[in-house]
Design a protein around this nucleic acid. Sequence first.
DNA 1: ACCCAGGTGGCCC
DNA 2: GGGCCACATGGG
Length: 221
Amino acid sequence: MKNREISDPYRLYLQLLRMYGRQNWWPAKTKFEVIIGAILTQQASWRNVELAIRNLRRRKLLTMQRLVNASIRTLETCTYPTGFYRQKARRIKNVTRHILSKTRGNLNRFLEKPLEKSRAELLTLDGIGKETADSILLYAGNQSILPIDAYTLRVMARVMDREGDYDSLQVYLQEMLPRELDIYREFHALIVKHAKKTCLNAKPNCANCRVDPCLYNLERY
DNA sequence: ACCCAGGTGGCCC
DNA sequence: GGGCCACATGGG
């Protein structure tokens, strides 16, 4: 890494790394599981995603060929615990069918295209928006791109006093962080870890929040 | 009886 | 460009 001035988000990253240690994301056994998990985790707790993944694994549907040959009904029984189970069943099947048709079953060929090309292609698929696309690219595609989830928006707004939408925060953070795969992966994972740990709820004064307020104000980022 | 969870797409203006 | 809405189960 180039010798550069330490930036604020980088200090945030270092601090979170000290607090929580390495997260070693994404929690999945294969690249295909990363893609499936990224869709299933939309607006769902990871706990429920694990249930759905387990359902798929029991039925041996975690290979592209087996999943695309499964009926929507079968897939729905697997995706059920994550909510939005009908559209998620349809979407994982469609995405899998697309990958199979484009690459004859070679997932690496699908992921190894240049970043902008891969991303644009992912974004054309139903059920894959910016965050899902970027998560797939970062954790399955080995591309240095930073997903911006709701937690990141909140942590940046509350802790670093920086508001912004997806695109502007992504540009800013990618500008400020060393452009390294490992740092991007850990940064995103650590933000989620911290957000969960501190109950950074949507409402600033969440009634359910039993969290030490100090955790909102990690000093001197 | 609320609120939230590692979003997305469609519709409206 | 932004503001709603549906999608839906499970946990606090």
